[in-house]
Design a protein around this nucleic acid. Structure first.
Length: 432
RNA sequence: GGUGGGGUUCCCGAGUGGCCAAAGGGAUCAGACUGUAAAUCUGACGCGCGAGCUUCGGUGGUUCGAAUCCACCCCCCACCA
């Protein structure tokens, strides 16, 4: 951030949804290093790309000289945030949540610097200050500051209260109080004066700024980041095969890279602003260049490279690009035997044919079991349209019962590799 | 505890004795067109290559035949207490 302030840059990127007292916050950030926090609740064993915007925001603040605290919700994760959720959620048991907390700590830590002097990041866990609290203290010291009338009026729980057919338990209703208490605690212990989060967190954040003012007598700020939406109205971060996770064990760097590469033209420049550290000027220039050029825009590949590097490092990016080049360039013949082995290691979905009775097993079963499609019906559909390609050769329904022939060693590359393509985008490597 | 309304295939939501594997929409998948885009059009969409098999909260029952009728049970919601 050279000539612009942090808030101006965030605003230019479209990364600010709401703020408490904008002018005062601008001034507060200008006065020196501010300690801020953002919470991540353990609802699975990995974060997904929905958490990327706040994670990168913490990093943006740190780069601007502020001190980020990443809060992992060991306590709040046991309760479940009702904000804008249509339904009550199932409770996870505490050993599960504790396990997830550990995983999230590691993930969160990738993005922020823990060793850069005064504004080094810290990871905190709200279970630390909630676990020992007894219910009477909670009700008298904390609960007394909250008005149920106000809590009910919050937009975030409105659909649970108004909507026919749904309700909200006291447990989830209390979530807001717990999160507010976190802020108050961090304000007292770390001098934290800013909380950031997704726009769905606005109600919880303002709850915290008020509690901090009431209990600590301190001014505290809040800032929310926009919910990422797609131009076609579908949900961001989900694909046919599920959520895009940050953990390479759950979403391979290759799949991750592909996800970004497939971004719509209508979204890609926004995503560059949200998910990368490229300057606004550079992004604008790219947009202009793409518009002037005929054909395929450059932006998707820039986005895919930048984000994959941020999440999976240079190594993950190289692996992802290696697979992509091999699969989509069309010249598989250039690949050496060692390259095929590397592709498996790099995360190209693959499976072994060892032990499978190829004479008895139809391709529909074989390919759906391998995960190329959800059911044999879909494979059948693809076969009927000649959308199944094995080592470059189209296969049809006639080949369905001829798996032994299709996957005969003599037909394999180097006598044992079969690259199966279903449709334009799905690839799977079979190995004898 | 009382009264009323509900639980249908991934989601929403029709369906009140056979014509129901179950309308319609959404999501998803494949094809055409393209740029591994969007939009549009076509097809698929419980499972099975197929013959066929298994579903409509659960368990029993009535019936030649039930998602639809009966009994009991479970769960959800609203209002009242």
């Amino acid at each position: 951030m050279t000539d612009k302030t942090l808030l101006q840059d965030l605003s230019a990127r479209g990364l600010i949804a709401q703020m408490t007292s904008e002018e005062e916050l601008e001034q507060h950030l200008a006065e020196g290093s501010v300690t801020l926090y953002c919470g991540f609740d353990p609802t699975a064993d990995s974060l997904h790309i929905g958490s990327l915007v706040p994670l990168l925001a913490l990093k943006r603040f740190q780069q601007a000289g502020h001190k980020p605290l990443a809060l992992v919700g060991g306590a709040t994760g046991l309760i479940g945030d009702p904000s804008f959720k249509a339904q009550e959620r199932k409770l996870n048991d505490d050993s599960t949540v504790a396990g997830w907390v550990e995983k999230l700590k590691g993930q969160v830590s990738q993005f922020i610097d823990f060793d850069c002097g005064a504004n080094s990041a810290e990871v905190v866990n709200n279970l630390d200050w909630t676990r020992g609290m007894d219910i009477l203290t909670f009700l008298r010291d904390v609960g007394k500051h909250f008005s149920v009338n106000q809590m009910i009026a919050k937009e975030s729980v409105k659909q649970r209260i108004d909507r026919e057919g749904e309700g909200i338990s006291f447990t989830e209703f209390t979530y807001m109080i717990l999160q507010s208490y976190d802020y108050q605690q961090l304000n007292a212990s770390h001098g934290c004066t800013l909380q950031i989060g997704g726009s769905d967190q606005w109600g919880n954040i303002t709850g915290g700024t008020e509690l901090t003012r009431r209990m600590n007598g301190n001014k505290a700020f809040g800032l929310t980041l926009p919910l990422i939406t797609k131009s076609d109205g579908t949900k961001f971060g989900k694909t046919e095969s599920g959520t895009i996770w940050l953990s390479p064990a759950k979403t391979s760097p290759y799949a991750f890279y592909q996800f970004w590469l497939q971004t719509n033209d209508a979204d890609v420049y926004n995503f560059l602003r949200y998910f990368t550290f490229l300057s606004i000027e550079a992004i604008d220039a790219l947009e202009k260049a793409d518009a002037e050029r005929e054909g395929r825009p450059e932006a998707q590949s820039v986005l895919a490279r930048e984000v994959t590097r941020l999440v999976h490092g240079e190594e993950g990016l190289v692996a992802a690009m290696r697979i992509t080049d091999a699969l989509f360039s069309g010249n598989l013949s250039d690949l050496s035997e060692a390259d095929f082995e590397q592709l498996q290691l790099d995360g190209l979905p693959s499976s072994s044919l060892a032990g499978i009775d190829l004479v008895e097993t139809p391709l529909t079963t074989l390919l759906s079991d391998a995960g190329l499609a959800a059911s044999g019906k879909q494979i059948k559909d693809a076969l009927q349209r000649n959308a199944v390609i094995v080592n470059g050769a189209e296969k049809g329904m006639d080949d369905n019962m001829k798996a032994a022939e299709v996957f005969a060693a003599a037909n394999g590359t180097y006598g044992r590799f079969f690259l199966v393509k279903l449709g334009k985008k799905k690839h799977h490597l079979f190995v004898i």
